[in-house]
Simulated assay, not measured.
Amino acid sequence: MFTEETVIEVRGVVQRHKHFQLGPVELSVPKGYVTAIVGPNGSGKSSLFRLLLDLSKPDEGEMTVLGERVGGDDRQLKARIGYVPDQAIDIEDHLRAEEKAAFASMWYPGWELNRYQELLRRFEIDPSIKLGKMSKGMRRKFDIALAMAHNPELLLLDEPSSGLDPIAWKTMIDVLHRYMERGDRTVLMASHIVDEVKRLADYIVFIVHGRVLGMFEKDALLESWYALYIEAGSMMASWKTMPGYRKHEQVGAQFKVVTGDVPEAERWCAEQGLRITGRQKLELDDILTVLIEQERLRMHS
């Protein structure tokens, strides 16, 4: 899919749980970009992160991260990665932030004290506070600072803005933009915040009910998904022959037809003699809603 070097390769990965199956997942994450995994809660985003870090095991398939196969002796590999999990680790609540940082620094050869202190200042974190006494937002800011203090090649961020207030959120966006300026670093993030994905992501991966539904270049995706309003006078035998067709419904004397390929869909309408009366650009959450609906129909068909 990519001409660029990839930093994550997931091939045929399946993980089975009692009431849920992740996969089979096929995924390539390109180096030097921000890739966002988008999907509803319970879709398998966090499960995929844990698999990539070898915190849980797949039942099938294999993965490579930064050129190393996941599942072996990965101490050196993990020293090149920064990770912010979706939930803080409760057993660390008794530690002060400065104690956690001192412990973490021993595991990362690239740890930079000045970088760590700079991030504490940017996020307005008091390192003398115990982790269990921090607010959810403060704990989140500390986890982000800790994950970035050793200048990792790869950042894995699972819902990074959870609990952040608007000012802290803007600071996080700026910090991540600056982190990416060198051009050789990579972020894989899971997020349900539409504005966050739009501000940060270069590529978007949709995952629903454990299935990866596709990977898209963000700008191209948002420019190609539209709802077209078409006069109902001369109804076609099937809307499904429209390029990029996703769904349709009748709205009064019109049909609202969603397409993921608006240039070709408009050309098709012209060839069929159908008059388009309106166009509505779909936002990211609209696109996800359509994909979720289609996946539910697929599962029950």
Rank of each mutant, 00 (worst) to 15 (best):
I37Y: 00
L27H: 05
I37L: 03
L131H: 10
D90W: 13
E68N: 02
F2Q: 14
Q254F: 07
K240W: 13
T289E: 04
R199W: 00
S28W: 12
Q117F: 03
G72D: 11
K218Q: 08
S43Y: 15
E249R: 08
E118V: 08
R11V: 14
T277K: 07
L213F: 07
H248W: 14
R279K: 12
K100P: 03
Q280K: 12
K57A: 04
L155N: 02
L288K: 04
Y245Q: 03
S128P: 08
L284N: 01
A237Y: 13
E153R: 14
G39A: 11
V197H: 00
A145N: 02
S162Q: 09
P166C: 08
R140K: 14
P263V: 11
S105Y: 03
L284T: 08
D54T: 10
E223D: 08
F49L: 11
E60V: 15
I207G: 01
M242Y: 03
H300Y: 14
R267A: 10
S238Y: 15
Q21L: 11
L77M: 07
E223P: 00
I129E: 15
M148G: 01
F2V: 14
L155K: 08
K57G: 01
Q76D: 08
Q250K: 02
H209L: 14
R275C: 06
G67F: 00
M299Q: 13
G72C: 06
Y229I: 06
M242I: 10
H150C: 00
S162C: 07
Q250W: 05
R69V: 10
H192R: 07
M242E: 05
A270W: 15
